[in-house]
Computed example of a mutant assay.
Amino acid sequence: MEDSYVLELVEPKFRDFHLLHCGYARCKPCHSYGPATRPNYIIHYILEGKGTYQVGERKYQLSAGQGFLIEPETLTFYQADVQEPWSYLWVGVGGYAATEHIRNIGLNEDQLIFRYRDGERLKKIVLEMLKHTKVSVANLYYLQGKLYEFFSALTEDEVIDSCVDISKENNYIQEAVTYIRNHYSKGLNVMDIARHMNVNRSYLYTIFKDNLGMSPKDFLTKFQISQAREQLALTDLSIEEVAESCGYRSCLVFSKAFKKENGMTPTEYRRRRRQEEKRTAVASEEELAGLGRKTSLKLNNQKR
């Protein structure tokens, strides 16, 4: 069982990209959903506790501060932990441009899990959505704005945030970063990026140096290692499997790059992060007291 608050839109106003439903749930021990498929994308973010998310043979042990993507028509299963059942929020989206927006936040069929540091921010956005249940054009525009705010938050990336403003060089840097996000696991190199951008390698080097203060190769490495950190923290994949999922064909090369970037080996990093996870706690749920169990433009009580 779960204690849930749900908002569902029956007829979205915006066709390209729109909110379908959102909600918050406090789950009982071992509460599960699936195996089942969904017709649209759903992003879950865990506020408290732990649980398991499974897609095919891939199984992830997740906890507060982490999230997962459900893709359309993909068989998935997820279950709350028996000792520390999770509480999570979710946002379901649709529209013909939904896949592009999902890819822009760095999620795809190869990258189904993520970490986000400011759970309070996401919680505030979804709680505001749940409060706006009046059937009106104004509310539909308000909810659309909140949806973009939710995606804006998830688009933040520690690698990109640490760089100089990337908006100075028209669309080249943005396009390159999006390409890296969506293909880093394929073993990209700088020539692949330049070829995709239809520019020569020296020009690509120049715009990266001028705008980000680093070469394309250094940026790609930083991004791959940032994703490796998430994999090490979120999954039980072996070091070899993490290396391969982040585009490294040699575990030795991966370990050297990881240690250079983080000052410790992948194994040491995983051990420290697991110790930190045991001490993690996320914010209280006092704002939920004023919410109804079933709210919507149209509402329902479907489990997510």
Rank of each mutant, 00 (worst) to 15 (best):
I207V: 15
N198Y: 04
Q174M: 10
H132G: 05
Y148H: 15
V135Y: 08
R249K: 14
G213T: 07
I239H: 04
E158M: 09
N170T: 13
Y141V: 10
Q144K: 11
K131Y: 09
K260F: 05
R270A: 15
N200W: 05
S152I: 00
L188R: 03
E158P: 00
E149K: 08
S250H: 02
L234R: 09
Q231M: 15
K222S: 15
Y203S: 11
R270W: 01
L188G: 04
E230V: 12
L234I: 15
C163P: 00
K217W: 05
V164C: 10
S152F: 06
E149F: 04
V137T: 13
S152V: 02
D161G: 15
Y148N: 11
A228L: 06
E128S: 15
Y205C: 04
A138C: 06
A176N: 04
L220H: 00
M264W: 09
D161I: 06
S255A: 15
V135F: 09
A243Y: 04
L127D: 05
R271I: 13
K168C: 06
Y269M: 11
V190F: 01
S255F: 01
N262T: 13
E241F: 03
K131T: 11
C251G: 15
F151I: 11
L234W: 02
A243H: 03
R249L: 09
M197H: 06
V159T: 08
Y269W: 12
L188S: 06
M129N: 04
I173C: 07
Y148V: 09
A228E: 03
K131V: 09
A194T: 05
V242F: 03
S255Y: 00
R229E: 12
E158T: 13
L147P: 00
K131F: 10
K186D: 08
H183A: 02
I193Q: 03
Q227L: 07
E169V: 14
Y141A: 10
K168W: 07
V253Q: 11
R201E: 15
E230Q: 06
L127W: 07
V199T: 12
G145H: 10
F219L: 05
E175Y: 05
M214Q: 12
L147E: 10
S226G: 00
M197V: 04
Y179P: 00
D210L: 10
P266G: 08
L130W: 05
K222M: 09
M129K: 02
Q224A: 11
D161N: 14
R270Q: 14
A153D: 10
